[in-house]
Simulated scan of single mutants.
Amino acid sequence: MKKDTAVTHAGRDPARFDGVVNTPAYRASTVIFPTVADLKAAHGKKYETTYYGRYGTPTTQSLEAAVAEIEGATHCAATSSGMGAIAGALLSFLKAGDHLLMVDTVYWPTRRFCNDFLKRFGVETTYYDPLIGAGIAELMRPETKIVFCEAPGSQTFEMQDIPAIAAAAHAGGALVLLDNTWASPLYFQPFDKGVDISIQAGTKYIVGHSDAMLGTISTVEKEQFLTIKDTLGSFGYATGSEEAYLGLRGLRTLSARLERHQRSALTIAQWLLDQPEVAKVLYPALPGDPGHAIWKRDFSGASGLFGVLLNPAPEERVTAMLDGMTHFLMGYSWGGYESLMIPTHTSIDRTATQWTHDGPSVRLHIGLEDPEDLITDLRAGFDRLSGKA
């Protein structure tokens, strides 16, 4: 199936549910078995059937099957949040004494998880330059078990050469894990590029409406899937039935929403390039972006999330700009129908590479509003920033 068709039909089985189009929300903890034999048989295939609520229900299994098909995987495990997916994936394949190579532009909660949690349990993390490509081979050690990627990078949007990194990582005996949230399962096919484990914050584009927490972990290897499911079950990472249902519902419109997000984001990003208050736009889909060639080679589209570097301005004017926005709301996460803007200049954290910019910076998520209204809102904000209003 083509992708537009897959997001509409993948994971659905109306005949199983009396013709209901979308798999119903199964609110289940205890599942009853008529005989001891049935109880034992279910335990042996607890990830394939309805055995206990924490391990999955028809709702979560439908979501997992759909995400796996769209992302090009054979197996998927749903979790209670994007951070739960990141933590669950890392903990599935790391133990005390192991070494992790983590991209320096990673999502800051992932950095915190590595620096605090993994360190306490004897896992060493080395951060690497996102532009390193095949040079990652020089950082590999015998104890390196995972190379973690995120493309583009969080907040600063550098593109990674995933195929080159994956080839070097595999030569050194390491798994490649990727945070694929920005592109969604539609715009980047990770397993075609050498990725072993793909992670998504389904809270963002899969749910798509800013009303549920969700994460997914996909793989093409059954043994890896079983390891992940065992880890998630041991930590109690369970996906709620309502959240899985909302993920399925959101998935059905993913293609239409992403197309609109991308089209509007490109319109606004190109407008921003000509504004005197803007020093640089960080968006790989723009032809002048340093990562554009890799994006064009490896990705089939871009999402609505990008960064903007502003020319130097007093802090109080930056605050006035943000506080007065009408359509761009301030709030964490992204991927919903609404446009968002948050300041980022104090939260960009680098240890392997250097990030310098003299002015403030913001991260924009372009929602589904009319781009002309968003541009009007931005122009008024820039007038406050420059002291004209």
Rank of each mutant, 00 (worst) to 15 (best):
H357W: 08
I268R: 03
A320E: 03
G387A: 02
D104T: 05
G240Y: 04
E369S: 14
L340W: 13
G301S: 00
L100V: 05
I375F: 04
V67M: 06
R249K: 15
S62E: 06
V106K: 00
P312R: 00
T239D: 03
K40N: 14
G215W: 09
L305G: 00
Y52S: 12
G331P: 07
V147L: 13
G56C: 12
T35L: 02
A265C: 03
L100D: 08
F33P: 13
H345F: 05
E158H: 12
A41S: 11
Q224R: 13
P14C: 08
S218N: 10
D4G: 15
L273F: 11
M159Y: 03
R297H: 06
L258C: 10
R350I: 08
A66G: 09
A41P: 03
N22S: 13
L364C: 00
Y332M: 11
R257Q: 11
A73P: 01
D4P: 12
P312N: 06
V176N: 10
Q262R: 03
A389T: 15
S29G: 06
T351Y: 11
R120S: 12
P276Y: 09
A77G: 09
Y51E: 13
Y237N: 15
H170R: 09
A15H: 14
I348P: 05
L329I: 12
A25N: 06
K193N: 13
P24N: 09
G88S: 08
L309V: 00
A85Q: 13
T30P: 12
T126S: 13
L305H: 01
A285P: 00
L232W: 10
R317G: 00
H365F: 01
I268G: 09
E369N: 15
G215N: 05
T79D: 10
K145E: 14
S264P: 08
A77P: 10
G335E: 08
N180H: 08
L266H: 00
Q354I: 15
S81D: 10
D373W: 01
E316Y: 12
S234P: 04
A41N: 10
A6Y: 07
T49M: 02
Q275N: 11
M321D: 00
P190F: 12
R350C: 13
P24W: 01
L101F: 09
A151K: 07
S210D: 04
S62T: 01
L310D: 11
A244R: 03
M1P: 14
T35S: 05
E243T: 15
A77R: 14
L248F: 09
W182F: 08
I294M: 05
D4Y: 08
A137N: 02
G84Y: 14
T30I: 13
H99P: 11
E223W: 04
G288I: 01
H345K: 00
R112G: 12
S386E: 12
K2S: 02
H9L: 15
Q189D: 15
H170W: 01
A87Q: 07
E150M: 11
R141W: 15
